[in-house]
Design a protein around this nucleic acid. Structure first.
Length: 278
DNA sequence: GTCCAGGAGAGGC
DNA sequence: GCCTCTCATGGA
């Protein structure tokens, strides 16, 4: 018997394919398999519920997929007259921002720079296969994300064999910092500005990646990563295609989208990427 | 073959 | 501070 979670207005497949997490795979038994931290899990939507195997992972899955949160309140907080955003929400209202482990999220996004989503996924799975912990779940194999120690032990050359290219440097330097005592957990207690600065202190992490980690790893739902897609969307939909400076776009997002700006960003990103309207 | 990708670091000014 | 160049690699 699986664990059953209430999951109203939750689109699992779209959430797992929205460029925030990169390792879940379709299961031969239905639904998807992946690891939540160190734990192998299978999840499958059923009516307005999410089925979870093994049952013991029910509460962790609830937190991971943010099923403990009032999702309708998030949607209701968005500016009603914002047609671009409302269209994006209507395109896929069940999209959630999941809660990822700090290190896994940081490391994955370090490997994401100047890469397409499909390739980030390929790299993520390869790193897991090579350096992660192997698990079995109902006859299927899967791997949890490698520890920072595993990356340090592997070294630059072996990391590059997984297709990370020059990003191996940032991945390795960041892993070394953590092995030398730096704690990602400490950023939880910092204010937004200091937390951003803390994350930008890692090699290979600039403002965009730091904001992704704040949003997907630290649950700071106001963090608003601006990548090439979002920059195009903002310019086209909010400034009539005008040449607006990056700083100015940033200021606009902070004042316009509200306390769940990161969620708004994810809806705009997902819609633009899936429909390729821009 | 050419262009682009959920960017960031280093160097020049 | 801003501007430009460069960094691997695979998919479109």
């Amino acid at each position: 018997m699986p664990g059953k979670l209430k999951a109203p207005n939750f689109d699992l497949a779209e959430t797992l394919d929205s460029g925030q997490v990169f390792h879940w795979s379709p299961s031969e038994h239905g639904g998807f398999i992946g690891c939540i931290g160190e734990n192998p899990v299978r999840v499958e939507p059923c009516d307005e519920q999410l089925l979870v195997w093994p049952t013991a992972m029910k509460s962790k899955a609830r937190i991971y997929f943010r099923l403990d949160e009032d999702h309708e309140a998030v949607l209701a907080s968005f500016p009603k007259k914002d047609k671009a955003l409302q269209t994006s929400v209507a395109f896929c209202p069940g999209l959630r921002i999941i809660r990822q482990p700090h290190w896994e999220c940081l490391a994955t996004f370090i490997t994401s720079s100047l890469k397409q989503v499909a390739h980030i996924r390929q790299i993520s799975l390869e790193l897991r296969r090579e350096f992660g912990q192997k698990h079995q779940l109902d006859g299927e194999e899967l791997y949890s994300y490698p520890t920072s120690a595993a990356f340090v032990k592997a070294g630059d050359a072996k990391l590059r064999k997984c297709g990370v290219g020059y990003r191996a440097t940032g991945l390795l330097k960041t892993a070394e910092k953590l092995e030398n005592g730096m704690r990602l957990k400490d950023a939880e207690n910092l204010n937004d500005k200091d937390a951003l600065e803390f994350l930008c202190g890692f090699h290979g992490v600039g403002e965009k990646i730091a904001n992704c980690v704040l949003l997907f790893g630290y649950g700071r739902l106001e963090a608003f990563p601006i990548d090439v897609w979002i920059e195009r969307v903002l310019r086209e939909r909010y400034f009539d295609g005008a040449e607006i400076a990056r700083r100015e776009l940033e200021e606009f997002t902070k004042s316009h989208f509200g306390p769940f700006g990161g969620y708004a960003q994810q809806y705009l990103f997902h819609h633009a990427r899936k429909t390729k309207l821009l």
